[in-house]
């Protein structure tokens, strides 16, 4: 570390006029720290007092709405309201003044570029949720049994904390290509060249590999997410249950198959469903790494391009609707799943 000079930074942190910063934002700050939690608790407690004043018979039919009302309000405002406009828009032409029925959908679904987009989304759909679940489950279950569980989890979790702006540069250090005559600066090609004595590969540009390379970036980022949730579910399994099974002479594999897996199943479905939806609306990785070039385009990025580059709201809306429709099978699966949990009670 001989070349390292001490970190003598003129820290602007110290020059900041904190007094002004805080006093200007004081009302907001107070609102944040005190007001928000108070308002939320006050809402539920206050309204419950009102509900209790209702006749006993009508209480059960009113009370649930008090509890779901804030959620329905926010989701209605932020997601449903814009989406209704989008769905309507998807049946109109580019200018938005002539009804074209399914015209936008027909045009898009016969466009060669969109077909590649759909193929890529299918690839994401097949690989991304599966790999995230596999690695997430593996890490959650295995790390539960080793002494260094906490550091392992922290390290696996770290990619979650990296913004997608930094993601591009991180993966440059993995996938970068240099001419065979130069030393490789990407670790993957360094391994290919120095250990396997092969020729370096342009992982991001070569259409044989690039979709897999991009999907893996997504998997890398989301595995920590799956691991944390699955691990929370695993920790929720009463230890007594496992112990009782062991006392009965069940081996570890049976315990995993007969007790752990069924009890974790609802959570696995949640993580799986979330990952399927994330695979459908994947955007960041492709947007940052290739902008959809080299046959890597996907639905959400194409939609973004239609919306902001082409200014074609008809196409963008139709793509958003396709995205929403693609989720329906997953939802039906979920409905079955949680009716089954209900029945088991």
């Amino acid at each position: 570390m001989d070349a390292m000079t001490p970190l003598t930074v003129t820290l602007p942190m110290l020059d900041v006029d904190w007094e002004t910063l805080v006093s200007v934002n004081l009302p907001t700050l107070l609102f944040v720290i005190v007001g928000v939690p108070l308002a939320l608790v006050g809402y539920i407690v206050g309204l419950d007092v009102l509900v209790r004043r209702l006749p006993k018979r009508s209480q059960p039919s009113v009370r649930p709405w008090v509890w779901v009302a804030p959620a329905i309000f926010f989701v209605g405002l932020i997601l449903v309201y814009p989406m209704v406009g989008t769905v309507v828009r998807s049946f109109f032409d580019r200018r938005g003044d002539a009804f074209v029925g399914l015209g936008n959908f027909v045009r898009l679904l016969t466009d060669h570029g969109v077909l590649i987009v759909l193929r890529n989304n299918l690839l994401w759909l097949l690989l991304y949720p599966g790999l995230v679940l596999l690695f997430g489950l593996l890490l959650a279950v295995l790390s539960d049994r080793v002494k260094f569980e906490k550091p392992v989890k922290s390290l696996i979790f770290m990619p979650m904390a990296i913004s997608f702006v930094a993601m591009a540069i991180i993966w440059q250090f993995v996938y970068y290509y240099k001419d065979p005559s130069e030393p490789q600066t990407g670790i993957l090609n360094a391994v290919v060249v120095n250990i396997f004595h092969g020729l370096p590969i342009t992982w991001i540009q070569d259409t044989r590999f690039n979709n897999f390379a991009l999907i893996f970036i997504g998997v890398w980022g989301a595995t920590g997410f799956a691991m944390v949730i699955l691990s929370a579910a695993l920790k929720g399994i009463p230890a007594e249950l496992l112990e009782a099974a062991r006392v009965d002479g069940a081996n570890e594999r049976t315990i995993f198959r007969r007790i752990i897996l069924p009890l974790m199943m609802p959570t696995i479905v949640v993580v799986g469903t979330t990952m399927v939806i994330f695979a459908l609306k994947a955007f960041d990785v492709v947007y940052v790494m290739t902008a959809g070039n080299y046959n890597t385009d996907i639905l959400a990025r194409r939609m973004y391009a239609e919306l902001y580059s082409a200014g074609n709201y008809a196409n963008a809306s139709a793509l958003a609707v396709i995205l929403l429709l693609a989720v329906v099978p997953v939802l039906i699966f979920n409905l079955r799943q949680f009716r089954a949990v209900e029945a088991r009670r």
């Binding site: 059960p60 039919s61 009370r63 649930p64 709405w65 509890w67 779901v68 959620a71 329905i72 989701v75 932020i78 997601l79 449903v80 814009p82 989406m83 989008t86 469903t273 979330t274 939806i277 459908l280 609306k281 955007f283 959400a300 939609m303 973004y304 919306l307 902001y308 963008a316 809306s317 958003a320 995205l323 929403l324 693609a326 989720v327 329906v328 939802l331 979920n334 409905l335 949680f338 009716r339």
Partner: peptide, 25 residues
Amino acid sequence: WMRFWGRDWIFLALVGLLAVPLQVT
């Protein structure tokens, strides 16, 4: 934990909204 009219369907619709691309909003 509560029973009310349309519960499962509202819940499903909520989950489905996870797929809304933020850009359109």
